[in-house]
Each structure stands twice: as C-alpha cells, then as structure tokens.
Design a protein around this nucleic acid. Structure first.
Ligand SMILES: [Mg+2]
Length: 584
DNA sequence: GCGACAG
DNA sequence: ATCTTGTCGC
C-alpha cells in the first residue's frame, strides 16, 4: 500500500527482523526514488545494507529505533551538526580519503556514521568530536541487531571497544570569532595577519615579494602606528585597487611610486583570490572602528574575523592557536589594545605557518578507523623466514627523507633484497602520528622491492600507541603483512624494568588499564631495553622471540641496523646526484 | 594547569 | 631524526 513497500527487491540484510516487525510499532520505508534522491543530495553511493534499512524504516522507524534518529528527515540535521563541529567543512570530507563519511543517526551527543567505501555492509563509527572517533560495530546490520538487543536506554559504558586517547597537541586549533569577543582590535588584526601568513605558506607563495605589504600590515600592532594613516596606506595597496582596470595615477596614490605599483601588481597576480581576500579582511578589521571608536565587543570586526576563519576552513587551512592573542584584552587602550610586536606573539606561543599541520584531525580519524583492522594473533602459513627491516633517514639541511627496506634470511642474516626511496617530507613529526611521516618513503621503497618478505620489523611502535595504531600497524595493515613494532623509547604505557640478562622481558601495560600493549625486552645484557609490540598478524610472544632472534651483537635487531645503513647510503647518493646536477 | 610525547 | 666533539668503560 505504502509507496515505501518493497516490490520485488530482495532484502537479505534484515531477514532476521522480518518476523518481529510488529515489535517496532509504526514503521514505514522509503521509496527507491527517495533513496536515489539522498544519494544525489549527499553526493555519495550508499551501501546496500543501509539502503535496505531505509526500505524498511526510512520514513518511520518505530519506537525501538526512534531515539537513534535514523529516519531520512533527520539526515540534514546530522550533517549540519557535523558541519558545526568542523566549522564550515563538508562533513563527508572529514575523513579525507576518497571515501565519504555518512552520518545516519545519533546516540546521545554522539553521531553515528559509516564510510561509503563500496562496502555493502560497512562498519559503524561513533563521533563525539572531530578528533574523537571510535569504531563501534563491525557492520551496519550488526549494529542494528545488537542495538535492538540492548535493554538499556543508551548503553554508553560499552560503546567503546578500546579507549581512544590522543595527545592534546594532536588536536587541531579550534578558534571561533566569538573567542575574540573580549580581545583588542590589535589582537584581531594580528590574528588576521597570522592567518594570511598561514595561507601564503599553504599555497606555497612564500617566494613572492610579500615585503610590499606584510611589514606594513604588521605595523598596525606597533606603538608608533597612526591607524588613520595605516588605513590610507593599506587602502592604496589593496589587491582590488591594484588589480583594477584603472591605470596608475599619481593623483590617486600618495604613498608609493610607479615601480612599487608595478611590483604590487605582479605580487597580487601571482597570488590567489583567497590570499588577496584575506588582505582585504585584515584591512577591514583594522579600519572598521577608526572613526566611531571601539564599541563594546566591536561586532563588525568580529564579523570580518568570522569571514577570515570561514575562508581558512574552506581552504582546509589550520588556524593559528589563540593563546598568544589572549594577552591583549579589549579593555586596554580604549579597545585597541596595547601595542606589541610579532616577536611578542612568538614568545607567547605563536608558531609560524606550517602547511603540513593541517591534516592532524584527519590522520587521527584514520587511525581510529584503521586500528580495528589490526590482527593481534599469528596469521601466517609457515614460520617467517624472510624478515624485512625498515628505517628512514633524514637530512638536517633539506626536507629530504630516505626510506629503506631490507630483506634478510632469518638465520644467516644474508641480505636477500633491498630497496630505497628518497623524496621530500610530506608530514611533520608529531608523536602519535609518526607513521604519516615515515610511511611514504617506505611504501615507495616497498614497491621497488624485488622479493617481498614474510614479515617486517619496523623502527617504531605497533599497538604500543595511544590509539593502538603505530607505524608497525599502519605498515602491516597497509601491506597486509605480518609486522612487528620495535621502538627504542617509550611512547605510552608503563612497565617494570626487566631483569638485566639478555632475553629478559616485562609487559608494557596501557595507561589506565591492565591491557598488555607490548613487551620491554632486554636485547643485550645490561643494555637499555627495547620496546616490542604487535604490528599486524602476530602475537606479542612470537614478536618478542623474532626480535630477540634478530638482535645479535647490538641493542637493535639487525634488520633495523641494516635498513638504517641502506637508508643513509640512499640519502647520500641522492644528495650527491642532486648536487652535481644543480651546481652550474 | 602541567607534564608527557615513537623517529 | 639531525650535527659533532668529547668522555667513559670494557
Ligand atoms: Mg628510524
């Protein structure tokens, strides 16, 4: 009767519900047209299991499922909520990748989503905040099945399969215009200029002649500034004015000559719209209250600040942290704030733009999602014979990074194969996000490797990691290869010192629980122990014995040592080849 | 609020 | 991780 009634469509995913549909009370399904409309509205391909769900419950989900707000009339609200969390970014862009996150319901304050990656019955995740994402159920059907079995209203206590923690510095800076409500105009201008600098760095426009405008902008925060003159000077240098069709006219321009005008033209032409718009917005903040004085919170400059923040978000740009600006309250100097310099900001924690830092939230989300794919038991057909080692080398004077993977025969330590790759770094070093820094050259080296190993020992932790997803896990899961994490120092967890003799070990325990996340292994007698943990497809005792087996004369396993050698060699070779090619 | 934080 | 010199203990 209902248009949502299924016709001949097979609905295999919720067979288990068909004989108890009356328990749900009032239910109604979606039509195929509605489902198609959702897909086009959200620009994604919905998984089959979810479509089946919609065919049954898409319009009315009955009292059992009602608290989850999973009917289609809620979808836009879910999306809006996520959008708010991310302040302007599209919710399905959160997880970066090519896949899109689809937010289909909620539990209390937490949003439920799956990733549209082509999987017919995808895993379900819970998002409490952008950087706090947990795997919840292994599939959508299982999610429905298990939720219906729960008696409790909202069984929050067992939401989390494993605790997800992250270092505070991993979290992206979240700043809203409202945060500047009580801060001086000088602080607002300075924040805008900092955003401008971040944008310049992000678009790799540092080489342009920013000296034409940046120092002048910064002069606003100095004690010598005359804001009226500053406004006049900046107005003449506005990108819109310089790039307009009107030719240079000495009568209109008081503050610079023709050659400066031409240089400015060149600058803004090579710049881009976003950066030029930021300059304009900074100008507006600086001049808005010029004649009226600063009233209360100066709502209009907050408005421009909001535009700046939105522009930054639209371009996926990290925002400067707000801490350094907090020291300039709106109560000082009639709202303008006391003067300061860029150095004052640096001393208070302002970090210059680093375009590599903009993706931390995405990286954390990936880890929370990928960690459930880690297999923590032995999963290999035969005892591993060809053991790979991996290490990465850096160069202090450039942004070069060289990765090496070496394959050794387990007992003889013969080098069976090796491969290296040198490239530019693509990610900064952030404890907890290490794999995003070292994986790219390692994966490139892996591609070149003529003989693939049975197992890989990585120079970094596996599950001995705040989100249980260190470098070794990332490598293992990515390559679908048994992997061991072997770190030199602790990242997280606590332990008792193992006995002094080679081979002694003690468990590495997770912070705040008794979960064993690794082994502290004495690899040489009375030498500092090393940290072994599961990477992928191997258990901790097997991992420990394999690592111990590879530790012959030194503290570190031969795999790591030899990989280190090859990586260093590759770096030197690359630099030498590059030098001769460049020096005229 | 402060310290801790793989390579 | 990087650079680089010196020192300690076997
Ligand atoms: Mg290393």
């Amino acid at each position: 009767m209902n248009a949502g009634r299924r016709n001949n469509t097979v609905m295999p995913y919720f067979d288990f519900l068909l004989d108890r549909l009356e328990d749900f009370g009032e239910i109604a399904g979606c039509t195929e047209e509605e489902i198609t409309a959702i897909e086009s509205q959200f620009q994604l391909q919905l998984p089959e299991a979810y479509k089946d769900f919609l065919r049954l419950f898409g319009r009315e989900s009955g009292h059992l499922l009602e608290p989850y707000a999973m009917t289609i009339d809620n979808l836009q609200a879910h999306k809006d909520e996520v959008t708010d969390m991310y302040e302007g970014t599209e919710p399905y862009d959160i997880l970066n990748f090519s896949q899109k996150g689809f937010f289909f319901g909620h539990m209390d304050d937490m949003l439920l989503f799956f990733i549209c990656n082509g999987d017919d019955d995808p895993a379900v995740y819970l998002m409490e905040a952008p950087e706090d994402i947990n795997a919840y159920e292994s599939s959508f059907t299982r999610f429905i099945e298990l939720e219906l079995q729960r008696d409790e209203e909202f069984p929050i206590s067992h939401f989390l399969h494993s605790p997800v923690v992250f270092f505070a510095q991993d979290a992206p800076s979240i700043v809203t215009a409202g945060d500047f409500k009580d801060l001086a105009i000088r602080a607002r201008v300075a924040f805008g200029i900092c955003c401008l600098e971040y944008a310049i760095s992000h678009f790799q426009l540092e080489e342009l002649n920013w000296a034409l405008i940046l120092p002048l902008l910064w002069s606003y925060t100095a004690d010598t500034v005359n804001t009226a003159i500053w406004g006049d000077q900046i107005a003449e240098r506005m990108p819109s004015a310089i790039l307009s069709d009107y030719p240079f006219d000495r009568k209109d321009i008081m503050w610079f000559e023709l050659d400066t005008y031409e240089q400015l033209q060149q600058l803004y032409r090579q710049s881009n719209e976003t950066v030029n718009e930021l300059i304009y917005l900074v100008f507006r903040i600086g001049t808005q209250d010029l004649h009226t004085g600063v009233s209360r919170h100066s709502a209009q400059t907050l408005n421009y600040l909001q535009k700046i923040i939105r522009l930054m978000h639209e371009n996926r740009l990290e925002l400067p942290v707000i801490t350094p600006f907090r020291q300039y309250p709106i109560t000082e100097y009639n709202g303008w704030g006391r003067p300061f310099t860029r150095e004052d900001l640096s001393n208070a924690g302002y970090k210059p733009a680093n375009n590599l830092w903009s993706t931390t939230a995405t990286a954390i989300a990936q880890q929370a999602i990928l960690t459930q794919q880690v297999i923590r038991y032995n999963d290999f057909p035969a005892p591993p014979v060809f053991i790979a080692g991996a290490d990465v080398e850096y160069d202090k004077y450039s942004d070069l990074i060289a990765g090496a993977i070496v394959v050794l025969e387990r007992s003889t330590l013969q080098v069976v194969a090796y491969a290296t790759h040198c490239m530019q770094v693509t990610f900064p070093y952030i404890p907890g996000l290490f794999s995003f820094r070292e994986m790219p050259p390692l994966l490139a080296a892996w591609e070149k490797l003529s003989q693939k190993p049975d197992l890989i020992i990585c120079d970094g932790h596996g599950i001995a990691h705040p989100r249980r997803f260190g470098l070794a896990c990332h490598m293992g899961v990515t390559l679908n290869l048994p992997a061991i994490g072997c770190g030199k120092t602790r990242l997280c967890g606590h332990y008792a010192m193992p006995a002094g003799e080679k081979g002694a070990s003690s468990p590495l325990l997770a912070d705040g629980s008794d979960e064993v996340i690794g082994a502290v292994l004495r690899s040489q007698t009375r030498i500092n122990p090393i940290f072994v943990s599961i990477g992928h497809k191997i258990d901790i005792s097997t991992a420990t014995s394999v690592v111990l087996d590879m530790c012959r004369e030194f503290r570190l396993p031969e795999t790591t040592r030899i990989a280190d050698q090859y990586a260093r060699e590759a770096m030197e070779a690359y630099k030498a080849a590059h030098d001769t090619g460049q020096s005229h």
